[in-house]
């Protein structure tokens, strides 16, 4: 069955919320205070994107639910984020490898969405594309510094890339969204541009592209890895303990 616009919007909203949450986990643990600031900023940008997307999802669904309904009242199997964003942070290199793969895709995605025939999404894209351009500058800058830094950082950067690469494919979008593309609601696929962009970063970082194509997927259909449910348990615990409460 082809995906509808609501499913597409939830995939993006869940992607940005889950990644925002993972980045927020770095706070007080970052390698330097400057990096606590940077990761918090990126986390906040993603959270902002998620909130706009959930609000729009509530409108599309027509049931009048707000952003918190989607974030707090759905179970892991209802979430539609790509698997890569729910993976644990690992060390700083693992997190930066995920960001590089994600940010290149997110940038191309938002750029393509600027000309969406859906006015709400096009307006959101116009802002998100600037935010993502900065995220990309941050993550590629770090990947290059780690890859081309010391022997240890090079080894860790390669290991980070190898850890996250198997999950990368889902960042390019789902295979049930062609109808939305035809209607101009979402932009054309950007597989080639993404591969070229990631390849360029990896080369400048003096790292090696993993030889095997990515293998893991399922998040966009609600089939998640073991890491999402525990994360949601932390995130949703308090809100669910007080049904109907205002905070």
């Amino acid at each position: 069955m082809p995906a509808d616009l609501l499913t597409h919007v939830l995939r993006q909203a869940d992607r940005t919320l889950v990644l925002s949450h993972r980045l927020a986990e770095w706070l007080t643990h970052a390698p330097e205070l400057e990096e606590d600031m940077a990761l918090a900023n990126i986390s906040l940008d993603l959270l902002g994107q998620a909130r706009h997307l959930y609000t729009y999802a509530g409108k599309l669904a027509g049931h009048g639910h707000d952003e918190d309904h989607f974030a707090y009242e759905r179970d892991a199997t209802d979430f539609r984020n790509p698997l890569i964003v729910e993976q644990p942070n690992g060390d700083f290199a693992v997190t930066m490898a995920r960001q590089v793969l994600h940010d290149h895709a997110a940038f191309l995605y938002w750029e393509s969405m600027c000309s969406s025939t859906d006015e709400t999404l096009a307006a959101l894209a116009a802002r998100a594309v600037n935010e993502t351009r900065f995220h990309l500058r941050h993550s590629t800058g770090w990947m290059i510094r780690l890859g081309d830094g010391t022997d240890e950082s090079h080894r860790r950067a390669q290991a980070g890339l190898d850890t996250m690469w198997p999950f990368a494919e889902e960042l390019l979008g789902a295979d049930d969204e062609d109808d939305l593309r035809t209607a101009g609601l979402i932009g054309p696929r950007f597989d080639g541009a993404w591969r070229a962009a990631v390849g360029a970063t990896v080369a400048e970082a003096t790292l090696t592209m993993p030889p095997e194509p990515p293998t893991r997927s399922g998040g966009l259909r609600g089939e998640h890895s073991e890491h999402l449910a525990p994360m949601l348990k932390v995130m949703q615990g308090l809100a669910r303990a007080h049904p109907g409460a205002t905070w």
Partner: peptide, 28 residues
């Protein structure tokens, strides 16, 4: 900071993240 991941609404999560981030900034 321990409550950022557990904040009971997205609005509170954003506020608390910004606040804890400010504290890093004030330290700096």
């Amino acid at each position: 900071g321990e409550w950022i991941t557990r904040a009971p609404s997205l609005h509170r999560k954003a506020i608390l993240t910004a606040k804890v981030q400010d504290e890093a900034g004030h330290g700096m």
